[in-house]
Design a protein around this nucleic acid. Structure first.
Length: 306
DNA sequence: GAATGCCTCTCGCTGTTATA
DNA sequence: TATAACAGCGAGAGGCATTC
């Protein structure tokens, strides 16, 4: 069976409402002949004459009378379905977003983001998931709404990306560490014992490459997988580590931070999402919220919610 | 006023080719 | 391999003129 022509529903609705081919034609901006042909197609489709001659006019058959209200309702529902989407009402919006972030993001941006979202959409919930890899599969499968971090080689080409901020690496030691006073030279920096941060267990990184170009080599005595662990070790020891400045702002409370005594490696933090969500007005709103929060100066974020 | 023959025109489908 | 652009073709919708 071929698909029915749904335009015939509009024709039937107009003819049943007007009780006249000519008036139904005027209502739908068609010629009487075109409406007459449409009525003939309706008769063929339904297997019922629907409207029959009675003097100079037409009268509905019992089948047409039985269909009248149903057709009216269907036409109204179809018009409702095809109406352009209305802007979401954020004051009543109920939705949970899954965000994949690396440790440090929640501590530095999470509270501010929650605060902004609560202001506009009190029923929206955020679920922060720890970043264990850079795979885009979770975005593609709809498990994640937003992935925040460094876009890398493993990012699928179809994934949409927007830059949030640039960050640079700084050195961190405990308050009474030798490096907390006096000028820090590359040599002084390299002489200490270091913690390297690498999720995939790689001991060497851009900092070691820069030191190598200066003829220096740092002594890495341990490698950890995340910033929080590295900073916890620094807090309880004489060890030195290097972390992104903005990303770890609140994680470094009570520790001494200093600019690296050589050109520091920089990273770009971006948010990534699947193109399926690109036009979704609610997801677009979330992206703008994240961008707004991340673009605020570090000092502004620290002065709020205290 | 409704139905119909004839005509025009639009639109969707299909196949082909080029391109990323 | 997917997608876009294009041409050719045919079905069907609508308009004009006419008849009932």
């Amino acid at each position: 069976m071929s698909n029915p022509d749904f335009n015939l529903l509009l024709t039937l609705d107009a003819v049943l409402a007007e009780g006249s081919v000519a008036r139904a034609a005027r209502r739908l901006h068609l010629s009487p002949s075109a409406m007459s042909r449409a009525l003939a197609r309706l008769r063929e489709t339904t297997g019922d004459p629907l409207l029959v001659r009675a003097g100079r006019g037409l009268v509905p058959t019992p089948r047409a009378v039985a269909l009248r209200e149903q057709v009216r309702r269907l036409v109204q529902e179809v018009q409702e379905v095809l109406r352009p989407a209305t802007p979401p009402d954020f004051s009543t919006l109920q939705r949970t977003f899954n965000l994949r972030v690396r440790e440090g993001f929640v501590e530095n941006f999470g509270l501010d983001l929650l605060h902004r979202i609560q202001q506009e959409a009190p029923a929206v919930r955020l679920c922060f998931v720890q970043k264990t890899d850079r795979d885009s599969t979770a975005l593609r499968e709809g498990v994640l709404d937003l992935d925040i971090g460094v876009a890398g080689k493993n990012t699928s080409p179809e994934v949409q990306t927007r830059q949030l901020f640039r960050d640079r690496f700084i050195g961190v030691v405990r308050q009474d560490h030798d490096l907390s006073a006096g000028e820090i030279t590359p040599t002084r920096f390299a002489l200490g014992q270091h913690i390297s941060i690498a999720r995939r267990g790689m001991e060497k990184g851009p900092i070691d490459d820069t030191l190598s170009s200066l003829g220096l080599k740092r002594d890495i005595i341990t490698v950890v997988g995340d910033f929080a662990t590295a900073l916890a070790l620094v807090r309880a020891s004489n060890l030195i580590t290097c972390v992104p400045e903005q990303y770890t702002g609140k994680l470094r409370a009570g520790l001494h931070s200093f600019p690296l005594p050589f050109p520091a490696p920089e990273i770009t933090i971006s948010m990534l999402w699947h193109p399926r969500l690109d036009a979704d007005p609610v997801h677009r709103w979330l992206r703008n919220m994240v961008q707004e929060v991340c673009s605020r100066p570090f000092e502004d974020r620290n002065s709020q919610h205290t």
